[in-house]
Amino acid sequence: MAMASSDNAVRSSNFTRALIYLVLILFALFYLLPFGIMLVNSLKPLEEITGGNMIALPQNWTIAPWLSAWSTAQIGVQPTGLRPYFINSIVMAVPAVAISTFVGALNGYVLTKWHFRGATWIFGLLLFSCFIPFQIVLIPMARILGILNISGTAYGLILVHVVYGIGFSTLYFRNYYAVFPTELVRAAQIDGAGFFQIFWRIMLPSSGPIIAVCCIWQFTNIWNDFLFGASFASGGSAPMTVALNNLVNSSTGVREYNVHFAGAIMAAGPTLLVYIVAGRYFVRGLMAGSVKG
């Protein structure tokens, strides 16, 4: 990945360079502003928002909105705050990410190193499943979850996210393993390693970067999912995004903007943290994920 600064041959004058910096900084502000405003206003008392300037810093700093959003705000009918929903999302996302990544790794390994007739077709079908509008599966999925009796549970959402996450995780690992030297697999075969031994001893130990990419991608997608959460999890079992939407769009009472902002930042927290810690991998993964089939 050519993210490292390269020796570009294009040169420009001082004036254009100043202009370039100006444009870039303006755009940086554009991207930072919404989040900055959320952060600033989440630390203000409500009167300062309704009666004041959204860009101004708080006159009376307060963390009350954060406490409220976390543990006492009204979500739906219960004044539970977002905490239980945050936990719901963790309980849902962690196993779903782990399972879909592992399955994707095995699939990628099979599709690249044990190529057989029809493998390209199978991969094409998997790949297309990444891009379907999920509306097309909502109705039957709701039925199946009902039949399996896991409707509205964490298991139900884990199943859904694993099922629709396999396509992307397979894509990542397939692309990664496609350029992984096949000679290594052959050498291991001659050394007497079997199918799973090759996977555990040779492939996985060299897959650190792609595991990171895949986990980040899956985590971001699953954590940020709204459609499945809203469709298949009701009330207390809803994930964070659904709870946040309930908080923000509940029509009763005074609109506590500062609490909404605090809640939104909480919902953004885990993926932002992952992005800050491992953003470089994230970008690389997106490149690879941009359907370089």
């Binding site: 000679e183 050498a187 075969q189 001893r201």
Partner: peptide
């Protein structure tokens, strides 16, 4: 392959990148 009592040296050497030289030899 492993039961034919043969050994092979590959063009790319195919050394397992995650193992030491010693582990490679004795794998």
């Amino acid at each position: 392959p492993s039961k034919r009592n043969i050994a092979m040296v590959f063009q790319s050497y195919a050394l397992y990148p995650n193992m030491t030289v010693g582990q490679n030899i004795t794998f």
